[in-house]
């Protein structure tokens, strides 16, 4: 039993805790805007995955929990002057990246 717990602890330490942020984005006006935002988010150290939708004007970002969410908003701004607003941040089970 101790061995199993130990393996579990090692795994969570090596994978790190993750979070998911849902961000509202203002200023996206065409499908290509979503590409620019997605690329900018995914270039940010600590971001594992980003999905951006034009119809909802929202991004869903999976990131390392020690990353300050202000970095996500900076990345969105850097993509072309878009304005992001964090709607929610929730813990997520670590995934294979």
């Amino acid at each position: 039993m101790k061995r199993i717990l130990g393996i579990g602890l090692m795994l969570s330490l090596s994978l790190g805790a993750e979070k998911i942020a849902v961000i509202e984005i203002k200023g996206m006006s065409c499908p290509l805007c979503t590409v620019a935002v997605k690329r900018s988010l995914q270039k940010t150290p600590g971001v594992f995955k980003a999905k951006v939708k034009l119809n909802t004007r929202r991004a869903t970002v999976r990131f390392q929990d020690d990353l300050n969410t202000s970095k996500l908003l900076e990345a969105i701004r850097a993509a072309g002057g878009y304005e992001g607003k964090i709607l929610s941040v929730t813990p997520s089970a670590p995934q294979k990246h």
Binding site: S29, C30, P31, T34, K53, L54, N55
Partner: peptide
């Protein structure tokens, strides 16, 4: 329906 919509114009291939 594409993954991304609406499209603002269709003058180019999408």
């Amino acid at each position: 329906k594409p993954e991304q919509y609406p499209i603002n114009m269709l003058g180019y291939p999408y």
